[in-house]
Structure formats: C-alpha cells, structure tokens
C-alpha cells in the first residue's frame, strides 16, 4: 500500500499545494470542455432539454468510484485513509435543498461559476460575489441560527454499503447500473424534447 501518497508522507504540505493547482487545472479544464461554463446550459438540466449535468456528473462519479474500488482491491490504495464526507442528515438535507434552489436561480454552482468567470461570463462574476456574500452572512449568523442544526443527526463516516448491508463491490455495481439507466432515460427525454421543438 503506497497510496494515498500524501497521507503516507511521500511529500509535504508545500508540495501538496502544487498538486492542488495541477488537479485544479484538470478539474477546470474538463468542466469547461463539458460546457459547464455556461449558465443556460447548466440550468437546462432543470427543464429536461439538456441533461449534460446529470451525464457528466454521474460518469465522473462512476469513473472515480470504480477506480477507487480497483485500486483498493489491488492493494495500492488504502481506502480507510481516503477522507470520506461525514454524514449529517439534517444539515445535508436542508443544505442540499437550499443549494438546489440556488442552482436554478443563479445558474451555477461554486465550481462551475469559477470556470464561467475564467471564460468571461459577467453573470458568473456577480454569482461569485453572491456566494461570497452568502458565506459571509452564514458566518456572521453562525452562532445564532446555524450552529444548532449543524451537528443534528451526526452519524460519522457512514458509507452506502453500511446502510444497505451489501458489500462495497456490489454497491459499486448497483451504482453503475443505476447510472446507465439514468443515461438511457436522459437521452430519451432529450430526444423527445428536440422533436417537440422541431414541430
């Protein structure tokens, strides 16, 4: 087992920042390639006539998920050392809903808005100001409103295999099947809407 390389001490904090920039470049590149630098394209996801968000996101999840499984299986990567988001159901449900509403109103999410700024979208620059303002308000009101709900239903490191009582490999397979089902549905819906528009 040699990976995660950083956690086994193969390089230090300073070098990890160089890695951060390199990984960010890859991240930004593919976001832009996919068309995520455009709010009209992103928002179209919520009106079913362009399902690119779903396709790109689930393909990325499936790719990384399968990769994690295989690297763990081969004994290259220690999966217990990969940080996994802790589960806080209440804050994730509330935050997720607010974020979804913000997404369809604003047309971006934080990552894609950065890409859109880099390609010169003025609405994305306003959006980023909005995000910064939102975070500032959150921080200012943290102890008054948000702190009490943040730790409600804290469950720690819970993975889907734990919840479903299935093996990790089987859950990966089920997610792959689900994703491909979603892709077939997405292609079908897109085609339907194009035909309707064509009339």
């Amino acid at each position: 087992m040699i990976a995660p390389l950083f956690k086994f001490g193969y390089f230090g904090d300073e070098f990890s920042l160089i890695i951060a920039v390199l990984i960010g470049i890859g991240f930004g590149f593919f976001l832009e390639r996919a068309g995520f630098g455009s709010s009209t394209k992103l928002a179209a996801q919520f009106y079913f006539y362009d399902m690119t968000v779903l396709k790109v996101m689930f393909t990325a999840i499936v790719t990384a998920m399968v990769g994690l499984l295989y690297f763990g299986w081969l004994g290259i990567l220690d999966l217990t050392l990969v940080s996994v988001n802790q589960t806080y159901l209440v804050s994730q449900i509330v935050g997720g809903l607010i974020l979804g509403v913000g997404f369809v109103i604003g047309g971006y999410c934080p990552g894609t808005s950065v890409v859109a700024c880099a390609t010169g979208k003025k609405d994305a620059m306003v959006f980023v100001l909005g995000v910064l303002f939102g975070i500032f308000v959150f921080g200012e009101l943290y102890s008054y409103i948000f702190e009490p709900i943040m730790d409600l239903s804290a469950m720690g490191r819970v993975l889907l295999p734990d919840v479903l009582h299935l093996s990790y490999g089987l859950v990966v397979f089920l997610v792959v099947v689900m994703a491909i089902g979603a892709f077939i549905l997405a292609e079908y819906v897109e085609k339907k809407l194009v035909l309707k528009k064509g009339k």
Partner: peptide
C-alpha cells in the same frame, strides 16, 4: 445570479 449565489453560499456551508 446574486440571489442564487447567496443561497448557494449559505446552502453549501450548511451542507458542508
């Protein structure tokens, strides 16, 4: 865009 961004900022912080 500003309103959506603001909601996004708050939502992202709540959801971590």
């Amino acid at each position: 865009a500003f309103i959506g961004g603001g909601l996004m900022g708050v939502g992202a912080k709540i959801a971590r």
